[in-house]
Design a protein around this nucleic acid. Structure first.
Lengths: 147, 147
DNA sequence: ATATAAATTTAAGCCCGCTTAACTAACAAG
DNA sequence: CTTGTTAGTTAAGCGGGCTTAAATTTATAT
């Protein structure tokens, strides 16, 4: 069998295992905070892509503006999001994570990825170098595929 | 800065990027089939872990038996799951994917991972070898961490 | 100025998944 | 055989997220 196929297969398995672990952890964390997956996703979006307007939420999650508004409302009530008027266009809102929101996510992310850190730390010096190289290759290739 | 930390960071970023892409694809596919995420997850469970009883569904998803029963009922109605009596214990049911269910998931999985295959195929011979090695290292380390 | 478009919000209603509680059927043990 | 336990189902009700439709406010263009 061709080597390419075998690597593809191994990569799939690795990613699958990672997905399962990560998803379970993610769901458990969201549940422990009393947030729904949808609410959590909005916070994550804000965390990774920074402040934005209501319309951006609506577009990114492929829901109506009404749905986005209601979703955000609850997170504002809960104190995780600050909703301010956009000075450059007073129709629009500026949504950003509150300090409490940021704190929440950082705890969640670190919890979710702790095992990855442990994994890397369990590798020998030499293994770490190899893994680092491979990641660089994959990341570069992925970037190239975007265009 | 220590190399270990930097690799850890790169690995996180790679996994994050993968998660986002995969999740979006997964959600889109589930939506296109008219299934909810929860329903899709049950099918995936059956696909990866094979046939099981109602109680196993209930345990794995951490919901009441009632919820599991209702969830499965819809999938039986939709023709994706076959629900039979367990011959060894007539109280219990044996849940397994129907041919239609298997077909559905295999299409979904292949769609979800096509870009990964493309990614691997875009690498040079030498790069593929390096990536293959690294994956082997990671997989072995992950297995060791399970115990 | 006035008409149109855009960014939200609110309200009403639907579907979904979850829970509790009550029920049926089958096994297990005295 | 009776009692208790286990597997699953059904019904009622709750809350969440989504949609459509209508309203509000602000920007834009003629």
């Amino acid at each position: 069998m061709p080597k390419t196929l075998q690597i593809s297969q191994t990569l799939r398995e690795w990613m699958d295992a990672f997905m399962h672990r990560s998803m379970r952890g993610w769901a458990r964390f969201a549940k422990s905070t009393g947030l729904s997956m949808a609410q959590f996703s909005v916070l994550m979006q804000l965390y990774h892509k920074g402040a934005c307007g209501m319309s951006q939420i609506s577009e990114r999650f492929d829901v109506t503006p009404a749905a986005a508004s209601q979703l955000v409302e609850k997170l504002v009530q809960a104190g995780y999001i600050e909703r301010a008027e956009d000075p450059s266009d007073r129709r629009a809102k500026l949504l950003k994570l509150s300090p409490a929101g940021t704190k929440l996510l950082e705890e969640g992310v670190s919890e979710r990825y702790r095992w990855l850190d442990d994994l890397v730390r369990s590798l020998s010096e030499e293994e770490q170098v190899k893994v680092g190289e491979a990641l660089e290759i994959l990341t570069r290739a992925a970037q190239k595929m975007e265009s």
